[in-house]
Design a binder for these strands. Structure first.
Lengths: 248, 248
DNA sequence: CGCCCGGTTGACACACCTCAACAAGGGTGG
DNA sequence: CCACCCTTGTTGAGGTGTGTCAACCGGGCG
């Protein structure tokens, strides 16, 4: 499933990321430089494993469309979902900077990925300092999200934690314009449980409490946020900083 | 306590970091360039808060000596320790890249910090691509550690988690040459509890179990690892990748 | 039709939390 | 020098949040 043919189809001028208001627009000169680095595209169906822990993959990807998640597993199968990935996110950087990936990535919905060669990374730092800066910015932003997840799993109760997670996914998805047309967040309760560090049964009961509070509605294969204010209030989370983020 | 006088005392050629074998040595040209960016030094006594969540600090620091930790708190006082910082680590990058810090940093032992101006960061990316690359490398490494912490807090049992944390601190401290002369890890059980997401009482009982297994010994104000193999075995952790890491 | 997957619910178990009391230092002030 | 307090660590008893087990439901799909 990692062997999907790589072909270039979308030109960078028509990149779907250009239309997402949450992303800081690229200058034309930057875009043309990026387009020289772009190797091609890759698609992955929902449920596919895009990157595998322990592998030393040769590519760096930027997500053009779709949902996915990063995770690690223990030997006996316990799985921790670390974070979710959205259009504009860069994945595979670990495999490019270090020798191998320390986590895996799986598609939640069909993914379209923009492919770069990991060997171009030093070139990017030498020739495109602004893009290198953006890349570091994105990595620092990932750290901010992980910090909040860790605070959540370590200190918040099941109800607080679940409210936080749903609000987090809602904010990120909305920023990426992925909830237009009443679309819901495409996760199973097992995904949420593995993110929260809770059992699936308790996750279910906690979600029902939030549904009774009219904070969300569970639909087949996903959930829809009805009242983000309640979720933020329950979790005591302030929400993501409203920064225009760069992309590559 | 954030107002310790800033003065330059140590020349970069005599930087204590040069002597730590775990760090990839700088080339002379790099070191001289860094020395032009170095603004001075700052010291902080044990227990001092070096950086505060929500502040937009003007500096970027590299740790020359001492132990510290990063943490976040909830409104009602619950605290989650996110990670520990060691000599060679860079802190304050969030305040430099974004508007403000999303976490605080406190000194566990007296800290000596090397101070850089945050406004020099774009200059560093433009003029010193290798150092910018190293900075990104360090950020990616921080992400790897956070991923493992999250896996730990989310999925591992109290015993597994505690074993992991002690082994982790031991490996990092040893790499930084901070355990020479029978020195122990200078944390209280409250620190460990706040890292593990456990109560202090249960942390105490779990540490005693590990002590009975002869994996560690608790001493006044810290712990000493007696048998790292046991800790790794209990936690099912493979240890930190043995990479020579860069520093700035 | 029948199977499988995802979601729901109740009963019960247990890992971990809270409360509480105490011990051993270390620091400080008289 | 002692007296006192505060911090840190230790231990027991009992409570609870969350896990485990198990049964069932509905829909999608072969």
């Amino acid at each position: 499933m990692n062997e999907v043919p790589i072909t270039q189809r979308i030109e960078c001028e028509n990149c779907p990321l250009n239309d997402i208001p949450h992303l800081r627009p690229l200058e034309d000169s930057q875009r043309s430089l990026i387009s020289t680095l772009k190797t091609g595209e890759m698609t992955a169906p929902a449920g596919a494993t895009v990157l595998v822990e322990g592998s030393g993959n040769a590519y760096l990807f930027s997500i053009l469309s779709g949902w996915g998640f990063r995770y690690k597993t223990l030997d006996d199968g316990r799985r921790q979902i670390l974070n979710y990935v959205f259009p504009g996110d860069v994945i595979g950087l670990q495999g490019s900077l270090m020798d191998e990936m320390q986590h895996s990535i799986e598609a939640l919905s069909p993914l379209v990925l923009c492919v770069f060669q990991k060997t171009d990374l030093p070139k990017l730092f030498s020739n495109l300092p602004q893009l290198a800066y953006d890349l570091t910015w994105l990595t620092a932003r990932e750290e901010i999200m992980l910090d909040e997840h860790l605070l959540s799993v370590g200190q918040r109760s099941a109800l607080e934690r679940t409210a936080y997670l749903i609000a987090f996914l809602h904010q990120r998805a909305r920023a990426a314009r992925m909830l237009e047309g009443q679309k819901s967040i495409p996760v199973t309760q097992q995904h949420l449980a593995d993110t929260l560090g809770l059992s699936i049964v308790h996750t279910n009961k906690t979600l029902r409490r939030l549904a009774i509070l009219k904070a969300l509605r569970w639909e087949k294969g996903g959930c829809t946020v009805l009242d983000e204010t309640i979720l933020l209030h329950i979790s005591g989370w302030e929400g993501l900083p409203a920064l225009k983020r760069p992309y590559i």
